[in-house]
Design a protein around this nucleic acid. Structure first.
Lengths: 135, 135
DNA sequence: TATGCAATTTACGTTAACGTAAACCTGAAC
DNA sequence: GTTCAGGTTTACGTTAACGTAAATTGCATA
């Protein structure tokens, strides 16, 4: 019953190379309940879903999220809530996350501006140097 | 020679309350060379520049920067480089930071989209519930 | 003078996110 | 058969960013 050319799978080493992290990290994410790959006896086999998860984990980390936070997001995404109460709380959660992201957007634009400032000052000084100023 | 109404200053407790952090954190930032407030004998006195720095530190932290990174940015901003070489390396540094921020912008927009997805699914299910579906 | 509050230094404790080392298995290649 | 690359578990080490506790100090107020 197994598809002849079912789904692409990956070893831990492959994923580690692709995302430029160590196998140790990937195992750690599993230990924390963020991924749960299949096994061939001892060895881990990662499917596409696992790979996507890894990508999401790293994205979260780049934004300064903790692994617990990322796990939180996963559960948020995976859960298929049956009660209206659950749906409401989920909406509240997404709103919270959205607030964080909005704050980060603001932070980034302000930092970008400051980088512009620094850069502009540099460029100006450089052109002054080229004109051969001493005064 | 001291201005009668020179500049607003702050105690460590005031700043801690304003930014919702502990005095311990503020002292720690000083220990790491990120701030260097004046003193009245033993006590620290923070001026406007110090306050701004604190704000910048927290902004950096929200973006997942380490304190060392933030310090790096400060030095970048403070240094008045005299040589063309220094100016060039500074431009390279700003470019690096800009790359990080750009990546974060992309990360955020993608996460936002996923939040949109989750939210849309929730809204739909909620309206279904309201219509009183069981099938 | 005593009491209390806010600040200080010193130092050890803690959590998250891995790194690193040891000891083992295992299928493919030589 | 052995070598070897890649994988496994177990366990202890490490770094960053503070928390927390203890002992001290200075100022204000009762």
């Amino acid at each position: 019953m197994s598809n002849p050319q079912s789904e692409p799978t990956y070893t831990i080493g492959e994923l580690a190379r692709e995302f430029a992290i160590t196998p140790r990290s990937i195992r750690f994410y599993e230990e924390q309940g963020l991924i749960s790959p299949a096994r061939t006896g001892q060895n881990r086999i990662y499917c596409n879903k696992d790979r996507v998860r890894l990508k999401l984990i790293l994205r979260g980390k780049r934004l300064g999220f903790s692994l617990a936070e990322v796990k939180n997001l996963f559960e948020l995404y995976d859960t298929n809530p049956d009660s209206a109460v659950q749906l409401e709380t989920m909406l509240q959660l997404t709103e919270q996350k959205r607030a964080v992201l909005t704050q980060q957007l603001e932070d980034i634009t302000m930092l970008m501006q400051e980088l512009d400032d620094v850069e502009a000052r540099c460029q100006e000084e450089l052109s002054e140097l080229k004109r051969g100023n001493i005064a």
